[in-house]
């Protein structure tokens, strides 16, 4: 990765800065804004009655998605979750095709057959969001095994939430990945609640990463709202995976600022708690950090934000103007 000429002093502050150029950093900020604007536009579209179905917004979790994906090469894979819009954008998906999918249109990534919970960009290495909690974890084992058998050198990052860590699939997948030393990074986005169930009531250990010991793999905990911290840990885990040294369990402590889905009335948490996390907004924090590092002026970051907003507006327009799928083609692609 290109190294910034002025990175020497910055490195002392944050080791991640040795690996990321100013351009890389700006791209991270741009992706975080794209995610935020995508989610806000998704919410607005729902309120305006432009979409049906449900959605799970990742507002507040932008740093874990972008930070974990940034170390990846284009041919590397990700597997995502029901809260997956951010991961998809982080991996480089086109918001136009994502919104078209969200709107159920034939131009969408999945031709309107998948919707929010099944957005996939197979050509771009995103092997899909998943409607089943923990559904992607065993699949990641197969992706890692396939990479290893084909000697492709590709790494698989699989996202899951704190809720999925209590599924049997978590246990089977982490054990298999570890005994076979597969090139996988297990990224737990611990946003504190599995729907309404707080982590402390759902697990007998304080951290998901504590469980890594049971599988003989490193368990790393980072501040999931700190993009550079996520990037640094993900970079190390990705490199380790690529060297054939096996998987890592990376736990990003974060928070979803919106409800679980549109039915959520926030009965299980306080306004004060939400407000406390809002003050740790990962985008504001990263933007301020870049400004203080001198690699971004306030004007430049405003411009990045405005450009992201324009791109999302255009994506919504594209989706609205796209054709509906033809019911005559309903049974297409049930089989290859």
């Amino acid at each position: 990765m290109p190294k910034n000429s002025a990175s020497e002093p910055r490195q002392n502050q944050r080791p991640a800065l040795a690996l990321l150029s100013d351009e890389d950093l700006r791209l991270c900020l741009r992706k975080m804004y794209l995610i935020r604007k995508f989610e806000e536009a998704a919410e607005a579209s729902y309120v305006r009655g432009l979409i049906h179905g449900t959605m799970h917004l990742s507002i507040g979790q932008e740093a874990s998605g972008v930070g974990a994906v940034t170390p990846l090469r284009p041919t590397d894979y990700i597997l995502s979750t029901h809260r997956g819009h951010g991961h998809c954008i982080a991996k480089g998906a086109d918001p136009k095709l994502m919104f078209a999918e969200f709107f159920g249109k034939d131009t969408g990534y999945c031709r309107g057959r998948g919707g929010s919970m099944h957005i996939a960009d197979v050509a771009g290495g995103n092997l899909g969001a998943n409607g089943i909690v923990g559904g992607g974890l065993p699949i990641a084992v197969g992706v890692g095994l396939s990479s290893k058998m084909r000697r492709s050198g590709d790494v698989c990052v699989v996202f899951f939430g704190d809720g999925a860590a209590n599924e049997g699939a978590f246990h089977e997948a982490l054990n298999l990945a570890s005994i076979w030393r597969l090139p996988i990074v297990f990224v737990c986005e611990n946003n504190q609640y599995g729907m309404s169930m707080p982590v402390a009531r759902a697990m007998a250990v304080p951290n998901v990463a504590d469980r890594a010991a049971a599988y003989g793999m490193p368990g790393v905990i980072v501040d999931g709202n700190d993009l550079l911290a996520v990037f640094e840990a993900a970079h190390e885990a990705t490199e380790r995976a690529r060297r054939g040294e096996g998987p890592t369990l990376l736990e990003c402590k974060t928070y979803r600022l919106r409800g679980h889905s549109k039915s959520d009335r926030n009965l299980y948490r306080t306004k004060e708690e939400i407000e406390e996390w809002r003050r740790r907004d990962p985008i504001v924090r990263f933007r301020e950090e870049l400004t203080s590092l001198g690699c971004l002026t306030p004007d430049a970051s405003n411009a990045i934000e405005a450009e992201a907003a324009r791109e999302i507006d255009a994506a919504v327009e594209f989706a609205r103007n796209s054709p509906q799928p033809d019911p005559a083609q309903l049974e297409q692609n049930v089989y290859a």
Partner: peptide, 14 residues
Amino acid sequence: GIAGTAVGAAITGM
């Protein structure tokens, strides 16, 4: 776990 392993391997070319 192994059923998922088969799925993941299948969608990536095996």
